[in-house]
Nucleic acid binder design. Structure first.
Length: 276
DNA sequence: CACTTGACCTGTCCGC
DNA sequence: TGCGGACAGGTCAAGT
């Protein structure tokens, strides 16, 4: 799923639906989706959720004894909540982990492709997760200024701007969809080398990244196939996307047909007229 | 260092 | 209708 706007939408929903609820049980049917020792599982039982956070594309559920459930949804993960006594389409064939709360609420971790996982970690283990420790800045934070972005980006002068934006150590939370969308808004071709970008283009890209992410959060994120919010609702960003998933369709700005190529090993969408 | 490829998995879609 | 191949929101390891 799930890039920054989708994860943010899930976190907002989880804070509404499972805050302060107490974990009664864990069930799982695929070990790699839930790589935790019996002792770790035991230490999380009967603990309550004190807060749900996002860092990059990761979801963090903090418990009242200092443990954290770290969740990564990778390509097809979902975190969906079934409130007590409500109908729900879950569990389904893709359900890997089921977390029941004492009030009857159920949280399902579904993941068609089984790339994602739910890890129970102590504070020390959490801090030692290499993936989290090396994450770049949050693009929507106050600290993420144009100068800050420029400095981080220029550490990768020899690579393509697409590869740099997908690199989670440059900035956190951008994936294939919002990368292509922000590059369109900034008028920059995805295969440009970072070192070829002018200061003005970098400033435009900085503004475009933040704009695209904010618009998507307002629209509940993007549902290509699997993504659902914690409430089980699809996102609608792709209904109005500039280029992602629109190859062969006319550019909304100039009418030129959107093209799809491969850059940095990923399907890449762009307008050959608006981007240069 | 930086790029590409393959691996991890399942499901869908497209062409023959 | 069936079958093979390509491809899909992400990351990591290994090779060049």
């Amino acid at each position: 799923m799930p890039e920054l706007p989708e994860i943010q939408t899930i976190v907002t929903g989880l804070n509404r639906l499972i805050l302060h609820k107490t974990i009664q049980s864990f069930d799982w049917n695929w070990a790699k989706s839930f790589p935790n020792s019996e002792a770790a599982v035991h230490s999380a039982l009967n603990r309550s959720v004190t807060g749900v956070r996002r860092r990059g594309k990761a979801v963090l559920l903090d418990l009242d004894n200092g443990l954290t459930l770290l969740v990564h949804l990778k390509m097809t993960g979902q975190l969906v909540v079934q409130p007590p006594d409500e109908e729900s389409p879950f569990p389904d064939r893709s359900t890997r982990v089921v977390i029941r709360f004492t009030d009857g609420t159920t949280l399902y971790f579904n993941d068609q492709r089984k790339f994602g996982w739910v890890k129970i970690l102590t504070k020390e283990e959490l801090a030692a997760q290499p993936f989290l420790a090396s994450l770049g800045p949050e693009p929507l934070s106050r600290r993420f200024t144009g100068d800050h972005f420029r400095e981080r980006l220029l550490r990768h002068r020899e690579t393509t701007v697409k590869a740099a934006l997908l690199n989670q150590t440059v900035l956190a939370g951008i994936g294939n969809i919002y990368c292509d969308e922000a590059l369109f808004l900034a008028g920059i071709l995805p295969d440009r080398k970072v070192k070829s970008l002018s200061d003005q283009e970098i400033r435009r890209l900085h503004r475009s990244l933040r704009k695209v992410l904010r618009i998507s959060i307002e629209l509940g994120g993007s549902t290509r196939r699997n993504y659902l919010s914690a409430e089980g609702v699809r996102g609608h960003y792709l209904d109005q996307a500039y280029v992602y998933g629109r190859d062969g369709e006319p550019c909304r700005t100039c009418g030129t047909l959107i093209r799809k190529t491969r850059v940095a090993g990923r399907g890449t969408h762009f307008c050959p007229h608006c981007q240069s």
